[in-house]
């Protein structure tokens, strides 16, 4: 999801740690206890969490851009307000998540620097363009739908601040998918042009949505450890399968066709079979070669750089005020 590891070559971090402490930590996590900021934790746990939470936060913030692209063009006052409120929620979610990661000793500014320098990753899905209004429907329906699957279990993740942030995120996100599907219903029942938009959006967003769950399990080296630490609750392939099974009937209801000739119900496994994902494309997008990856990064850097004088001004004003108060 927003949080799945993007790279298959994550180096294991080896630090000499007191085996007694490690053992006590593992026992607490295994007993479903929450780990809090000042508790002792293995270095690898801390680093993995900072990477995962900040990646999640970056995804929320970069994710504001494709949808923000349509706020000024939303086709009714109601849709405009809903979309603005939704994108605002994403700013809020990014904010909660950065704050959760900050409790691990990395500042938001450091995380933002890592994003802007290209060192940090974010979900590949946001490197695709929103071409028509139907894309706003498709993002809510598919992208938020996929995100929810991953985020709901994270409300019980082992790191307390992360779990609490996810509780808030999930509560607020509950309307996001529904508003997206509602847009799709309107389009699917609309004019021929609207139906064309809806089908085209599904065609373009389907495969990138499946890729959101990350590399296949046999290519996801840290899954086992992350699941033991309860910072991941289900494997990439399990979640992907669940998503396909849930989404297929929703597409049927809309009268839209999922762009996969291999998609078929498999009675034996009690789920759908689906076609081969183009992993080459996935890794290319992870490397920053997505269709609008450059635009996304340029927009984020510009917002931050253009805001520098504002941040400085407010800090300078407060410094003056404090100096006056001290005098």
């Amino acid at each position: 999801m927003y949080t799945t590891e993007m790279s298959k070559t994550v180096k294991p971090i080896e630090v000499a740690e007191d085996p007694a402490l490690v053992e006590a930590f593992e026992a607490r996590v295994a007993a479903d206890e929450f780990i809090e900021p000042k508790d002792w934790m293995p270095d690898a746990y801390r680093k993995t969490l900072v990477r995962q939470i900040s990646q999640h936060a970056h995804s929320e913030i970069v994710g504001m851009l494709p949808e923000g692209n349509w706020i000024t063009r939303a086709p009714s006052l109601r849709r405009k307000a809903i979309l603005l409120a939704k994108v605002q929620d994403e700013a809020g979610h990014g904010l909660y998540l950065y704050c959760a990661a900050e409790t691990l000793g990395t500042s938001r500014e450091q995380m933002i620097d890592a994003l802007h320098s290209g060192k940090a990753k974010y979900s590949t899905i946001f490197n695709y363009p929103t071409l028509t209004w139907a894309d706003i429907g498709a993002i809510g329906w598919l992208v938020d739908g996929a995100a929810i699957m991953n985020q709901v279990p994270l409300q019980r993740t082992s790191y307390g601040p992360y779990a609490r942030a996810m509780v808030r995120v999930c509560k607020e996100e509950s309307f996001h998918q529904r508003q997206g599907y509602e847009i799709m219903i309107a389009l699917a029942n609309g004019t021929p042009e609207q139906r064309r938009m809806a089908q085209d959006a599904l065609n373009r967003w389907w495969w990138p949505s499946l890729m959101m769950f990350g590399p296949p399990d046999d290519n996801s080296p840290n899954t086992e450890r992350s699941m033991r630490w309860r910072i991941k609750r289900e494997t990439n392939d399990e979640l992907r399968q669940k998503f396909v099974d849930i989404t297929k009937p929703q597409a049927d209801y809309l009268g839209l066709t999922i762009p996969d000739a291999a998609l078929a119900w498999n009675e034996e496994k009690g789920g759908h079979d689906y076609g081969e994902i183009d992993w080459e494309e996935f890794y290319a997008v992870v490397r920053g070669e997505g269709p609008v990856a450059r635009e996304r990064m340029e927009a984020r850097r510009k917002a931050w750089d253009d805001g520098a004088w504002v941040r400085d001004a407010a800090a300078a004003h407060e410094a003056k005020r404090q100096a006056k108060a001290a005098a």
Partner: peptide, 14 residues
Amino acid sequence: MSDGGQGGHDWPLW
């Protein structure tokens, strides 16, 4: 805390 003039740093946490 920003240096109060230069750098565009993030603000303190509350």
